[in-house]
């Protein structure tokens, strides 16, 4: 056991423990905060494994953006602050499938790698990763940018109720004389 092994073991224990709390806590907001702990421990794992850029991107995007979005959603759906009792379904099929998946994969990986050691390759700094991305993986990178744009447009379309309404409704509201200003502005906007 070297120092890196001990660090990986400790950070992995923290990540799995926080993950257990994420899927089992009764408090919605606390689930989001335990998710921060879990993702932060995973970022530490990445650092120990030599993936510097991935670790910092993990902190920036997951801990900085995704968890904040999730907490916003918790607030916007008017979640109760205290413990809530109706968060869970009956648990035994979920425990069966989830435990089966986790333990089965663990057995598979332990059987494949036993207690072998590997020497660490060079750290994945921003320079080396950028060289790889813009030399070997340029096409997937561009496709991902298109995907991000379409996800953005999709989120905007989903959250606006006036897009995708059937056309006759415009005639209905145009016949309504009580709000001529709104109709005019509406017609211009479309």
């Amino acid at each position: 056991m070297t120092g890196a092994d001990l660090l990986l073991l400790a950070l992995g224990a923290v990540a799995v423990g926080a993950g257990v709390l994420v899927v089992s806590t009764k408090h919605l907001v606390r689930a989001g905060l335990y998710l921060v702990v879990c993702l932060g421990a995973l970022a530490g794992d990445y650092l120990v494994l030599g993936a510097e850029l991935v670790a910092w991107v993990q902190v920036l995007i997951y801990v900085g953006a995704v968890v904040v979005l999730l907490l916003f959603a918790v607030m916007l759906t008017r979640a109760p602050i205290g413990a809530s009792d109706d968060l869970d379904r009956p648990g035994w099929p979920a425990a069966l499938i989830g435990g089966g998946a986790g333990l089965g994969l663990s057995v598979l990986l332990v059987d494949a790698y036993r207690w072998s050691t590997v020497t660490m390759p060079g750290a994945g700094t921003a320079e080396r990763l950028g060289e790889q991305i813009f030399r070997s993986w340029v096409l997937p990178f561009e496709v991902l940018s298109v995907l991000l744009l379409s996800a953005l447009v999709g989120a905007v379309v989903l959250s606006r109720p006036d897009i995708g309404q059937p056309a006759p409704q415009r005639g209905d509201t145009a016949g309504d004389t009580s709000t001529p200003q709104t109709v005019g502005a509406d017609g211009v906007r479309r």
Binding site: M1, T2, A4, D5, L8, L9, G12, A15, V16, G19, V20, V22, V23, L28, A31, C38, D45, L49, L70, A73, V74, T77, A79, D86, L87, D88, R89, G91, P93, A94, A95, I97, G98, G99, G100, A101, G102, L103, L105, S106, L108, L109, V110, Y113, R114, W115, S116, T117, V118, T119, M120
Partner: peptide, 29 residues
């Protein structure tokens, strides 16, 4: 570095995620 430690961590986390998706009722969870 023994790769079995992070591999088992990842397998357990995946199992926890599957459990959470099947168990939770709240869509945000």
């Amino acid at each position: 570095m023994r790769p079995v430690v992070p591999y088992v961590t990842a397998a357990l986390l995946f199992g926890l995620g599957v459990y959470g998706v099947l168990r939770r009722r709240n869509a945000v969870l």
